[in-house]
Design a protein around this nucleic acid. Structure first.
Length: 645
RNA sequence: GCUGCUAUAGCUCAGUCGGUAGAGCACGUCAUUGGUAAUGACGAGGUCAUCGGUCCGAAUCCGAUUAGCAGCUCCA
């Protein structure tokens, strides 16, 4: 006799039985249930219960159920591949947030035609509704089974399993795969599946290993869900900054200029300028000193900072890096060593600390050719850079100031809601290779940072081997409409570089001390931020940062003079305003203005209008009828001043 | 850098078996007008990404390069 407690009720059983049977006895199970947590461990519905336990059922509507569902879909894909291409070798195939993938080692490239064929075979497997059975084997037998099946990668995975690990397999029809599970009861539940793409992926994620073929797919319990998913994807594509940013003329690229070197067109340049002025002013209010430092330096500087050893591949080098008899320069990939020279300019007192240095800093990084993407990943970018030189006891206070500033600016531009925090730490295994400094220095910096983050109540994930070469980071991650994450802002603690550069201050006790340094950004890099703003607002930027805020549309020629008169009144107050005096119908002018996502249009010559008024159409609120020019202007200025979204 | 895909007018795309280039929108001119998501007529626009090869002949077939996309690896 044992008790199975579901959240809804507790049921007693005499003999062992499956989760499914237990749930059925409790009258809780439906067709949608695909998995369960038993005492916190996720299992399949066929898992046998033998003792007291707590059971929580999952459907495909929740994350864990969906995960199991997608994992089974990955197995169906693998089965289809083995049926159509028996020589392909299995590697791994997990469920991911957006669906699933499976990596194969195959001589035959998986072209779109091949994917279509695989999709067809998957549908057959679903229709066959094969039972999915779990079984376990001791290590030697497991190895033997996978060797017989001709799966060298699986053999390797078995060999790498730790001593005493349970080695489980899942079998569906003729197909058997090494897998921890859990899985669905049978293949029949995967009603709708689509293979979305095939790409390359390194075995075990290491670029020194063989490149495998990764097939991505999505799977759903119904065709309607698949349809809804594909439609949502289409909607996301309409927000893609790389498409609408070009269409709306924020930026462009030119073949002869090269990859990762976008041209900011007048609209893009204007918005960046607005953000930049705002950030520089905001930082000034918060006690930052503005600097302007060179974009390049001799290799000697990078030798001191460590960039020459740790970052040389990422730099554009001017001259022969190997020839020590000649001068060799490099464009700067980071601002740190330059801005430190401001501190080093003269002997410093503890009274001058914290010294907050800010710079709108253009950087150059020689990214690999496959990395560039729109405005998100470029080779030249301008960042709201800053370094704070501190006495050690000021670290927490100043760190908090940096975090508050970053949160304030991200909130103001409307991006904070899609942000998460990552505490990026070093990997001791790469000490001396990727990372400078001793284990003690790293442990110290990380524990200080961890304490600060906990004191500030920051909820973060830990990223191992994500640190900078000189210290741990708090990265603010932005999740875009496709679910992809990038770092938008970073705040880093550096206990190494000050010493390398011989930075010191005279403390109150008359002793020379080495300061701590915080590296930080406030709005991140302007190009990337602009990209995410375009995406976030689907190209319709809030009025305060819109490159064109008002467009005046005279209906007929006789209205043009008045239109320019109104423009003059608005422009005198700093409003970014244009007149569309083309010889076009008013309908066409309105349509163009809407397509270009200008926040306000003023139709001149409308019936309702009197002298001194304009017919206002707001992008957000639609037609507002005739409004006095003065009233419109003062409302607009208020909106811009308050940065209302 | 790696794997796969792509490149025709400013944009979205046609272009069949290899025979010297098409549409819509945008743009310009004229006419017209309070056409409130598209007033009409006319016009201009392309060394089919670049270079090379095959062929009597290449937008089309082959190769290389460049650029773009998705993913991997790397990163703000």
């Amino acid at each position: 006799m044992f008790k199975v407690s579901f959240p809804e009720k507790t049921v007693e059983f005499e003999a062992p039985l499956s989760v499914f049977d237990a749930a059925r006895a409790a009258e809780l199970v439906t067709r949608a249930h695909v998995a369960a947590d038993v005492d916190g461990t996720t299992v399949g519905m066929t898992h046998v219960l033998t003792a007291d336990c707590a059971v929580k059922l999952h459907t495909t509507a929740d994350e864990k159920g969906k995960h199991v569902f997608n994992h089974t879909a990955a197995h169906i894909l693998a089965q289809a591949v083995k049926r159509l291409y028996p020589t392909a070798k299995l590697t791994i195939g997990p469920a991911i947030e957006s669906g699933f993938y499976y990596d194969f080692d195959s001589e035959i490239p998986f072209t779109p035609e091949v994917l279509a064929a695989l999709e067809g075979e998957m549908k057959k497997i679903v229709k066959e509704n094969l039972l999915i059975e779990r079984f376990e084997l001791p290590r030697e037998e497991a190895r033997k089974l996978m060797e017989e099946k001709g799966e060298p990668y699986k053999v390797q995975l078995i060999d790498e399993l730790p001593e005493g690990a349970v080695i489980s397999f899942y079998r569906q029809g003729e197909f058997t795969d090494l897998c921890a599970g859990p899985h669905l009861f049978s293949t029949g539940a995967v009603k709708a599946v689509k293979l979305t793409q095939c790409t390359g992926a390194y075995w075990k994620g290491d670029q020194n290993n063989k490149m495998l073929q990764r097939v991505y797919g999505v799977a759903f319990a119904s065709k309607d869900e698949l349809k809804a998913h594909l439609e949502a994807l289409e909607e996301a594509k309409k927000r893609d900054h790389n498409k609408i940013g070009r269409e709306l003329e924020y930026f462009t690229t030119v073949e002869s200029i090269g990859q990762g070197l976008p041209i900011l067109l007048p609209k893009g340049a204007r918005t960046v300028q607005i953000l930049q002025r705002w950030i520089e002013d905001e930082e000034q209010k918060r006690g930052y000193l503005l600097t302007k430092t060179p974009l390049m330096a001799k290799r000697d500087l990078y030798r001191i900072s460590g960039h020459w050893d740790h970052y040389r591949d990422g730099m554009f080098i001017l001259g022969d890096a190997e020839d020590e008899t000649k001068e060799c320069f490099a464009l700067r990939p980071m601002t740190c060593p330059f801005q430190y020279q401001v501190f080093l300019n003269k002997k410093r007192s503890y009274r001058e600390l914290p010294m907050r240095l800010g710079e709108t800093s253009t950087l150059f990084r020689n990214e690999d050719s496959g990395e560039m993407h729109g405005l998100i990943r470029v080779r030249q970018f301008t960042i709201s850079e800053g370094h704070l030189v501190l006495r050690p006891e000021q670290l927490e206070e100043e760190f908090r100031g940096c975090l508050e500033l970053a949160k304030y600016v991200l909130d103001t531009v409307g991006m904070l809601e899609n942000c998460s925090f990552r505490f990026s730490q070093w990997d001791p295994a790469r000490a001396g290779i990727k990372y400078e400094g001793t284990a003690e220095q790293w442990e110290h910096a990380q524990s200080v940072m961890g304490t600060i983050l906990d004191n500030l109540g920051v909820k973060y994930e830990i990223g191992i081997d994500e640190a900078a070469f000189y210290g741990p980071k708090l990265d603010i991650q932005y999740k875009n409409v496709f679910g992809k994450e990038d770092t938008i802002v970073t705040i880093q603690i550096d206990m190494l570089l000050a010493e390398k550069f011989g930075m010191e201050y005279v403390d109150s006790d008359g002793q020379m001390k080495t300061p701590y340094i915080i590296h930080r950004t406030s709005l991140g890099c302007y190009e990337r931020t602009l990209a995410y703003l375009i995406e976030r607002y689907a190209g319709a930027l809030p009025t305060w940062m819109a490159p064109e805020q008002v467009r005046i549309l005279p209906i007929g020629d006789e209205h043009i003079d008045y239109a320019y008169d109104v423009k003059k009144q608005l422009a005198a107050k700093g409003v970014r305003v244009e007149v569309d005096d083309r010889n076009e119908t008013i309908g066409k002018k309105i349509r163009n203005t809407q397509l270009e996502k200008v926040p306000y249009m003023l139709v001149i010559g409308d019936n309702e209008m009197n002298a001194g008024t304009v017919a206002v159409r707001s992008r957000k609120e639609g037609d507002k009828g005739a409004v006095a020019v003065d009233a419109f202007l003062s409302d607009l200025l208020l909106e811009i001043e308050e940065k209302r979204r």
